[in-house]
Structures are given as C-alpha cells and as structure tokens.
C-alpha cells in the first residue's frame, strides 16, 4: 500500500500477474476452457438444491426476523396504552391511533382504534424498538396479501395476537434487545407498577398488582415513627 497518491501504482494480489493478460495457445483455441466451464456446470447439477418450492414449502423465519407488526394481547386485552410513540417513530407514518381512558382498568388508557396501513409499513421495527410497554412487536408473518387498499389498513382486531403465540420473538427481545448496557444498577421490576407487561409474573411478594397498590397506599398513610431530621 502506497502512502501518497502522487502517481498511479500497481498493487496486485494475483501471483501470476504477468500472465494475467496473456493467453496461452491452448487457451486461445478456446476448447479446453469450454470443457472446463461445462464440467463446472455439470458439477452444479449434482450439488444440493438451494431453492424452495415456496407455496408448498414455507420458510420458517428466525426469531430475529421482522415480519408484520402485531399488538401483543395479554390476558385478553392489549398491552398498548396508546401513548403514540410508535406513530411518532414510524418513518413512513403508517400507524394511527386514538387514545381513550378507562378508570376501572389499572392500565387506565387503551387505544380506541389502532390502525396500521400495511401498504405503508416498511418493516423497519422502529415501533417495536421505541414501545415502552412491549405492546407492539414484529411477528413472523411475511406473506401479507390484500385485495384492496381498504383491506390493507389493519385494525385492532387483526393486529392483536396473544402473547403465547409470540413467545419466540419476546424471548429474542429479552435476550438481545432489552439488556441493559453500561452502568449497572438493580432493577426493581416493581418500579413500574403501572406496566401491564409483568402483571402475570410471580413477584417475590406474591401479591397481585391491585394488592400492591393497596399496600403502597397503606404504607403511605402510616405515620413515620421519627421525623428523620
């Protein structure tokens, strides 16, 4: 490798560079080369098949694959709290939603409607990357067909997929996407008691979310034994 670019320089990795542009007599008469190429072609005929008979044989994508974005259904309800972050992050503006409130539900907010225009979606996975509730993830669906533009707008019914069917993707996200890097501090999963993401997990306290909330309320109401001053 030269240090400056003053003049053109030759740098070849081919040990037989001097022969590179000179064909020998045998090569000039062309026939040996033809047979060499035909031999290579023949060899390829017996090499293992690399293709797939697509509609009969379906390709099973790896769990890292970003297919159709779906909403995670957790205990018969979407995890989505309609914060609108996925709609903001979406580069082709494919997502639209309307938030609504329900004070009886500990989650409090839910999307009134949630639509993804699959004609616009570019499967970049940004919605999944920004979602603070792990409510929208990329599934493995890749053959997406519709007969009209109206059908291409997927609503909540078509987007909701039970989380049991998304185990592989959620597992992948846990291992390769969610890991904390850099400064380490102990997470308290109970920190985010509003998150519906972990409601089904066995917490060490063994209490349900509602019980935890009530206990917290009780603790808050208890007078401190000293003034800490």
């Amino acid at each position: 490798m030269q240090d400056n670019l003053e003049k053109p320089v030759l740098n070849t990795l081919n040990k037989e560079y001097s022969r590179e542009r000179k064909l020998s007599f045998l090569e000039r008469i062309y026939l040996p080369e033809v047979f060499k190429a035909l031999w290579y072609t023949l060899k390829q005929m017996f090499s293992p098949k690399f293709t797939m008979n697509y509609p009969e044989e379906k390709w099973d994508p790896p769990s890292i694959f970003r297919g159709r974005p779906v909403l995670v259904e957790d205990n018969g309800q979407e995890r989505c709290v309609a914060c609108g972050l996925c709609a903001r992050a979406c580069p082709p503006l494919a997502i639209s939603m309307q938030a609504n409130e329900d004070s009886d539900d500990p989650k409090e907010r839910y999307p009134d409607f949630f639509e993804i225009n699959m004609l616009r979606c570019i499967y970049c996975g940004f919605c999944e990357e920004v979602c603070p509730e792990e409510a929208i993830v990329m599934s493995k669906d890749y053959d997406i067909v519709f007969e009209s533009r109206e059908q291409a707008i997927y609503d909540k019914e078509r987007l909701l997929v039970p989380k049991e069917d998304l185990e592989e993707r959620l597992e992948y996200l846990r291992n390769y996407r969610n890991n904390q890097f850099g400064q380490f501090w102990d997470f308290q999963e109970e920190n985010n008691i509003h998150s519906v993401r972990d409601r089904d997990q066995n917490w060490e306290s063994g209490l349900s979310l509602v019980d935890i909330l009530e206990q917290q309320k009780k603790i808050d109401e208890t007078k401190a034994s000293s003034t800490w001053s």
Partner: peptide, 12 residues
C-alpha cells in the same frame, strides 16, 4: 442514543 429497554420498562 436510546436507553436499554430494561431501563425504559422499569425506570422513569
């Protein structure tokens, strides 16, 4: 850059 999802899920 984006924080890790663990931080997003469990810290304000």
């Amino acid at each position: 850059a984006y924080p890790s999802k663990d931080e997003v899920y469990y810290s304000m």
